[in-house]
Amino acid sequence: MDAEKNSPTPVTSPPVIHPAVAPLSFLLGTWRGQGEGGFPTIHSFSYGEELFFSHSPNKPVIGYTQKTWKLSSGEPMHGESGYWRPKPDGTMEVVIAQSNGLVEVQKGTYSFEENVIQLQSEMVGNASKVKEIRRSFKVVDGVLCYEVQMATNTVSLQPHLKATLKKL
């Protein structure tokens, strides 16, 4: 008789969410929706978008990936990925690498009670024109809304992107 066939199925417990990540666990998963973009130096545009927030058990970090596409054709437009590191005092550090070569190091705050995250760039690397990026996220009634503001060498901080996403 084969011992493996008669051995009981191992009991596995659900993954443990790190205490630093727990206040932001509402973000974990896949979000999809649509957004609009613009800036004084470019034409306005609409896009489809998917965000994915992941967590490795027992690690104090959230993995982040984002991709956008043209609504009319499905053609890829932009992508970025990085890590969000929340701290118990309500602050967080974020690093994001974009598909266009730009890298952001951001710091900010989060509010568990209000489901709000505010981020501001500390450094924008590999960008000859972009000088500052601010991101604001808020979840209301299960819908994730965000806005991105950007400043360049020639344009002060202006709205750039906004989107509304639903959790899948």
Rank of each mutant, 00 (worst) to 15 (best):
A3K: 12
A3P: 11
E4K: 14
N6W: 13
N6Q: 11
N6I: 08
S7N: 14
P8S: 10
P8C: 09
T9K: 14
P10T: 00
T12N: 11
P14A: 09
P15S: 04
V16F: 14
V16N: 14
I17Q: 06
P19F: 04
P23Y: 01
P23C: 00
S25G: 01
F26K: 07
F26H: 08
G33Q: 07
Q34W: 08
G35N: 02
G35H: 02
E36Y: 11
F39W: 04
F39H: 13
F39V: 01
S44P: 13
S46I: 05
E50K: 10
E50G: 00
L51Y: 12
F53Y: 12
S54T: 12
S54V: 04
H55R: 03
N58F: 13
N58H: 15
V61D: 10
I62Y: 07
I62F: 07
I62M: 05
I62L: 08
G63R: 04
T65A: 11
T65D: 09
Q66E: 13
K67H: 13
K67N: 13
K67P: 08
T68G: 09
T68M: 11
W69Y: 06
W69M: 01
K70I: 06
K70Y: 11
L71I: 10
L71E: 10
S72Y: 01
E75T: 12
P76I: 04
H78P: 01
G79D: 04
E80L: 06
S81H: 14
W84G: 00
W84R: 01
K87P: 04
T91C: 05
M92G: 08
Q98V: 06
S99T: 09
N100V: 07
G101F: 03
G101A: 05
L102I: 09
V103G: 04
V103E: 06
G108Y: 10
G108I: 05
T109E: 09
T109L: 06
S111L: 02
S111G: 02
F112H: 12
E113C: 00
E114Q: 07
E114A: 03
V116F: 05
V116E: 11
Q118R: 13
Q118L: 12
V124P: 06
G125Q: 08
S128H: 15
V130A: 10
K131Y: 09
E132S: 10
R134I: 00
S136W: 12
S136A: 09
F137I: 02
F137H: 09
V139M: 07
D141S: 15
G142L: 10
G142N: 09
L144K: 05
C145V: 08
E147F: 04
M150A: 12
M150H: 04
A151R: 05
N153A: 14
V155C: 01
V155E: 06
V155A: 00
Q158S: 15
Q158N: 15
P159M: 05
L161I: 07
A163T: 02
L165V: 04
L165C: 07
L165Y: 04
K166Q: 14
K166M: 11
K167A: 09
K167T: 08
